[in-house]
């Protein structure tokens, strides 16, 4: 794993950000998704954003990418506004669901080159530097054999690697991956984790991975941010306790276990052998987190 560099300018600086979606109908209120989120993502670090469905993870990503504007607060990516950073190709992005139209008669190489071609003047061709970026991305993601294959003829894993190659061909400094291991088995998650390790180390990337899967997160990240409308936790994965998780996932747990009352100071980690006889670690699961 690469080591975060705290002396450098942060990769992402989020200050007191709030975001609400506008009302979707007459008489309805806007939906507040994020409020008061402040966070600093160090350059060359690997941040995992964890949180329940609807907790604002993907919205925060869209704010960092400049695809949405915050209702309040500010975001800077390498000292620039997200739109500037995006225009300069500093951000690579893999969306949660690949929504591309795979019926297009395009080869893997054409798809990978798309972000670079979109920046070209109409009469220009790809530069040698651009071509070597494409070759490097193809090599790193091991899609060399698929270079000329039609995009619609790929398997799910091949397609994901192609889209990651597309995300890094612009030589970004920040790679944002939204739920990259959704529906992937444990072996696949491990392969993915090692792939991200390799790419980040080779390219000196800062990586932000959004997930609601704990295993995927611990495998990939050196820092964790727990998000459920607001930021509940931002530290190393070691600091994640059951209390923190219960607090973040309270919205998901309540329908099953009833209202969850959390006291972070008294909550204990029942996986820790030293707490084996703690009353909260008994048979009543509700007591564990409340």
């Amino acid at each position: 794993m690469t080591t975060p560099d705290q002396t450098q300018q942060p990769a992402v600086e989020i200050r007191d950000v709030a975001f609400s979606y506008p009302p979707s109908g007459i008489g309805e209120q806007g939906l507040e998704v994020l409020r008061g989120v402040t966070m600093r993502v160090e350059a060359r670090s690997r941040l995992g954003i964890l949180g329940p469905n609807g907790g604002g993870k993907s919205t925060l990503i869209k704010l960092i990418l400049g695809m949405l504007d915050p209702s309040a607060g500010s975001i800077q990516v390498f000292g620039k506004t997200p739109n500037q950073a995006r225009r300069e190709g500093l951000i690579g992005y893999l969306p949660q669901r690949i929504g591309a139209d795979l019926d297009w008669p395009l080869s893997v190489e054409q798809v990978i080159a798309m972000p670079l071609r979109a920046k070209l003047k109409p009469w220009s061709k790809l530069s040698d530097e651009d071509r070597s970026s494409i070759d490097r991305a193809i090599e790193l993601l091991e899609v060399d054999q698929l270079r000329d294959r039609r995009i619609g003829a790929l398997s799910g894993g091949q397609l994901q690697r192609t889209m990651i190659a597309r995300a890094i061909c612009t030589r970004p400094k920040l790679l944002v991956l939204d739920e990259p291991t959704l529906g992937v088995d444990i072996a696949g998650q491990q392969r993915f984790s090692s792939l991200i390790d390799t790419i980040s180390a080779e390219l000196g990337l800062t990586t932000i991975v959004v997930t609601h899967d704990m295993r995927a997160l611990v495998a990939v990240a050196d820092r964790v941010a727990c998000l459920s409308r607001t930021l509940h936790f931002h530290d190393t994965p070691d600091g994640l306790t059951p209390a923190v998780l219960a607090q973040v996932f309270a919205h998901d747990i309540e329908p099953i276990l009833g209202e969850v009352h959390i006291d972070a100071h008294t909550a204990v980690d029942c996986d820790d052998p030293s707490h084996a006889h703690h009353p909260d670690c008994g048979h009543d699961h509700r007591g564990g987190a409340s």
């Binding site: 990418l65 400049g66 695809m67 995006r86 225009r87 190709g89 951000i91 992005y93 969306p95 929504g99 591309a100 139209d101 297009w104 395009l106 798809v111 798309m114 972000p115 979109a118 920046k119 612009t170």
Partner: peptide, 11 residues
Amino acid sequence: SFDEPVCAAYG
């Protein structure tokens, strides 16, 4: 046309 949801992220 190929990837409308993502193209904005690439300018």
